[in-house]
């Protein structure tokens, strides 16, 4: 009975965390999958979102306000970063280096301002329900629900309005897009801003459930980058599926191994999957 409840607990945790992970990946999916810009700083945007949530909640007293403000601020930060790096954004190597510079700068700033010691934020919804003898926070369920709603809105925006069409058009044929009257630089700015805002929102949503450190960005970046590629660039629901699979596998492995070993095993599994799968789907649709 003990084992069954542990496994069920791992499953539930995997699914809720997986949906959050999917939200983080969705931002990268817009920036990398649709616009084709490699953005190593995505994890740092997420990190900044988490710090902003902590800062706004402790200073202004409202987590829900933070949830509203963090994506706005991080989105503007994204637009600024894209503006600065515009000259090199079509060159994969240079944009990896440039956005990595942004990563170091953001991470360094967080370290300078708030120090390396982890910050903690208590959950805005305190109640827990009892699950197999352990308490499970309602907040995780709420966070997953907010993520899911955001993902549905994003899907609607990208698949049911002409915004998504424009995103695809500028990457596939910039010249034709100009001819068709699309303002290409503006699309890149807004797309990048949208992606960054999604990272900021997910950072804020996650903030009450993790310890907030300057270093939280790069590791999550590796995970979401894996998810976006494994799911197929630009495919939101595939990425959601992969995010859930990733964290469920990780959650289940955690019930048998220590967390580090579980993470190692999950990474290896995804890597093997990625390498064995030939001809990764790059077509969109």
């Amino acid at each position: 009975m003990e084992l069954v409840s542990q496994i069920l607990f791992g499953l539930l945790n995997g699914v809720t965390w997986g949906i959050l992970l999917a939200l983080i990946s969705s931002g990268l999916n817009v920036i990398f999958g649709l616009l084709g810009i490699v953005n190593v700083a995505h994890g740092s945007f997420y990190m900044v979102g988490a710090y902003l949530a902590w800062l706004i909640t402790t200073q202004l007293g409202s987590f829900w306000l933070a949830l509203f403000l963090a994506p706005l601020i991080v989105g503007m930060l994204g637009i600024l970063a894209e503006f600065i790096l515009k000259p090199v954004e079509q060159n994969h190597t240079l944009s990896v280096l440039g956005t990595f510079g942004v990563t170091l700068a953001l991470q360094g700033s967080a370290l300078t301002i708030w120090g390396g010691a982890p910050k903690r934020l208590s959950a805005p919804v305190g109640w827990k329900f009892s699950l197999f003898g352990t308490g499970y926070s309602y907040y995780r369920i709420i966070a997953a629900a907010i993520s899911l709603i955001t993902l549905i809105c994003l899907w609607f925006l990208l698949e049911r309005t002409d915004v998504g069409l424009k995103f695809r058009a500028v990457q596939e044929d910039p010249e034709l897009s100009v001819a068709a009257g699309i303002r290409v630089p503006l699309v890149y700015s807004l797309g990048f801003g949208l992606g960054a805002a999604l990272a900021g929102l997910s950072g804020a949503l996650v903030a009450p459930t993790v310890s907030i450190t300057p270093e939280m960005g790069l590791r999550i970046f590796a995970i979401v980058f894996l998810i976006v590629i494994a799911g197929g660039l630009g495919r939101i629901w595939n990425a959601v599926l992969f995010a859930i699979v990733f964290s469920v596998v990780r959650g289940l492995l955690t019930t048998f191994f220590n967390p580090t070993a579980a993470l190692i095993a999950t990474f290896v599994l995804v890597l093997v999957f990625l390498l064995l799968r030939k001809n990764l789907p790059t077509s969109r649709g």
Partner: peptide, 20 residues
């Protein structure tokens, strides 16, 4: 010393843009 990583990050951005 604390601003060193920030400096390095900005330096990298500047190099990429101006002096590859």
């Amino acid at each position: 010393g604390v601003v060193y990583p920030v400096l390095v990050g900005l330096l990298l951005v500047g190099l990429v843009l101006g002096f590859p």
